[in-house]
Computed example of a mutant assay.
Amino acid sequence: MTKPIILVPGFWLGAWAWDDVAAILRDDGHDVTALTLPGLESADVDRSKVTLSDHVEAIADAVRAADQPVVLAVHSGTGFSGYAATDLVPERIATMVYVDSAPGKGALEPGFDGVERPLPSWEELDENLDGLTEEHLETFRRRSVPIPGALLRESAEFTNDRRLDVRTVMICTGMPSAQLRAHLTEGWAWLAGLSELHDVTYEDLPTSHWPMWSRPRDLATLLAEAAG
């Protein structure tokens, strides 16, 4: 029996970002849940009181709600909240998958003092856009929601070493795995938890930072393999 799959979108995105991947997985018989995290429901939501802990708990609650240990896949900036969730429910996560992401520790941008951060311009974003069509970019821009500022300046507390034994798969898309591993000693917050994990494998899927749009079937195949 395959494990349930929980899909967590990155910054500025809701569950809709996983629609193509989720449809492929469901057609193949997988139990899939895609999340929209607090404050990302719509542009009209009040994000002033949304905390990093709110996101961590929302992910952990979805894991707890499953009837067996899950494959938990997080994308981009949710590597921070996703890794913190493994500290809360390590026994409920069969495999942790980071999609062009990593287990983050500390604050991504501790000096940020705004209530929220909207999606920047493509030039300011400085992310790999390979394989994305104009339609992808238009949809992203139109449906994006500002992220709560707390996600940038807050950090999670880690107390449960059982998280270190959670099987982890790094799906490297915008940055090759060899390049990512070369940065492990540079002190970047978004990579800070990776070197402490005991069971990590790497999968290279060369494409954009948003492989759920540029290579949805290939990404779905890797997630299905993680689900066993």
Rank of each mutant, 00 (worst) to 15 (best):
H55L: 12
R64A: 12
P90K: 01
S144T: 02
H75N: 14
S214P: 10
S155E: 14
T173H: 04
S155W: 07
P90A: 01
L37G: 04
D61A: 15
Y98T: 10
D31F: 09
V50L: 06
T51S: 14
L164M: 06
A22S: 15
W190G: 07
W12D: 00
F140I: 15
P38C: 06
S101Y: 05
E157D: 13
R92W: 03
A224R: 05
G228C: 09
G187N: 05
T159D: 09
G174E: 00
F140Q: 11
G106H: 01
T95V: 15
V74M: 04
V89E: 05
H55M: 14
D218S: 15
A94K: 01
G14Y: 01
L194V: 03
R47L: 03
L180T: 10
L25R: 01
D165T: 14
A226H: 08
M170V: 13
A62E: 01
L180C: 05
T201F: 04
G39D: 00
R181A: 12
S76L: 09
A189W: 03
N128S: 13
E127F: 11
F112Y: 15
D218C: 09
E41P: 11
K3L: 12
T221Q: 13
L132S: 02
R47A: 07
S101E: 00
D54R: 06
D54Q: 02
D113N: 13
Q68N: 12
T207Q: 00
L37S: 01
H198F: 04
K3E: 12
R64T: 07
E225D: 14
A178D: 14
L194C: 00
L25S: 02
T173M: 03
N128F: 10
G29I: 13
A65Q: 04
T185F: 10
D28S: 14
V56K: 04
D31V: 12
R92E: 06
T133R: 10
P90D: 00
R117M: 14
L119R: 07
Y202M: 11
A66M: 06
F112L: 11
D31H: 14
G39L: 05
A156W: 00
